[in-house]
Write a protein that binds this DNA or RNA. Sequence first.
DNA 1: GAAACGATTTGATCTAAATCACAATCCATG
DNA 2: CATGGATTGTGATTTAGATCAAATCGTTTC
Lengths: 239, 239
Amino acid sequence: MKEHNILNQLKVVCSLCSLRELCLPIGFALEELQQLDALTGSKRLVRRGEYLYRTGEKFAAIYAIRGGFFKTSVLHEDGREHVTGFHMMGDIMGLDAISTETHACDAVALECSEICEIPFDRLSELSMVMPVLHQNLHRIMSREIAFDHEIMLMLGKMRAEERLAAFLLNLSKRFSARGYSAASFQLRMTREEIGSYLGLKLETVSRAFSRFQEEGLISVQRKLIELKDADGLKRLLRV
Amino acid sequence: MKEHNILNQLKVVCSLCSLRELCLPIGFALEELQQLDALTGSKRLVRRGEYLYRTGEKFAAIYAIRGGFFKTSVLHEDGREHVTGFHMMGDIMGLDAISTETHACDAVALECSEICEIPFDRLSELSMVMPVLHQNLHRIMSREIAFDHEIMLMLGKMRAEERLAAFLLNLSKRFSARGYSAASFQLRMTREEIGSYLGLKLETVSRAFSRFQEEGLISVQRKLIELKDADGLKRLLRV
DNA sequence: GAAACGATTTGATCTAAATCACAATCCATG
DNA sequence: CATGGATTGTGATTTAGATCAAATCGTTTC
């Protein structure tokens, strides 16, 4: 009974690990996704606008996104909110809560999403007997740290249009790694949320979008973005 | 022979773990520090201005700071540098390199420092048989992620003086947790490095220091800082 | 101890992005 | 399908911080 349970969890976790490889540039993803689809972990549906977890809640599990789109944000005492990340299929959320065993940010679904809940104590147990899992956990956390440092550079050093260009290119790369079009995608977040993430006001984001369109770099129709000239966007980053 | 070696490493690592607890608000630090001082890990001296590691170098170990002061920074293609952190006694550096097995930032000593080099494969082995170590590794990485999110909020949402106030209060807290004065300390970094960390220019940092002094919040003499009114600084954060 | 260099402070000006304002458009819901 | 609130786009104005400039202070070097 218990054996079966552990084995099942093991399956979950294996798929999770390979799934995460999506974030690497290489694109050997599809069959892994189907594996994930076949597994029987504790899934949950989170509707648009619903919280997956909130700041201050007891930490019990990390979450792998099977489909959909999330934002995470931290709240300052004075009410200021800062969006710390956007998360999509294959991403892991909740890793920042391990140290305090309390969630340090809010996670909200930006569209109807399905997540796979992975009890953290179970995961820890498993990773003690499964070196590859252990290793991958470290990798995932390490990658998040390194990525956050990139964002810090962006927030600290880049001008508005550079930030937006970097943002669009990053989204494009991530969609592409998941088998979607790199050149054309639907934004799930508002201009205000993009602004919060990039340290800009929504008007500035809107103006930058318009400017990129004027210059023929992208085409914008509300939330539908088409990258017309990705190299042009990349050039913006090497000012 | 091998047993002894492992045991030795275990000692290193145990001290490392408890040492890291310094970062918690509670201050039960001194005896742990002495433990650290007594251990026989592979120590190394890093002189002021020397690199502990550089971007692109192969990752092999993480580093626990026994004494001294470091900065880490990421470099953008165009030459722009962004300081991602300042690190002192008890802090662990190099965690962001696990995922790619390549260092993603530079680490430079800002004063003559002593570090304890912890080979990562050895650490991984050990953590497989030592649950508490395993757990603490996760905690340390998780804490860094959560802390980086705080910095992102600071870079994205706060004004210049708020950032500097938050910076000073954070330094004060960390010095205090290590048994040093919370009210009076020597800055190890230049105004330019502070500015790079906070997303400001050195002139802005200098002006903010002067302003704080005029208002009686702190006293500044070059690198010597005295916090006269920590509550006043905290009030600045709740604008 | 003079010279040279780097770090800091302070002032004057400039500019990118914030703020304010409002119209246009979308879309959610009864 | 009509209505109201949210979202977006754009213009006018303001402002925080960048940039430019210069003097002062400290430290290292010869």
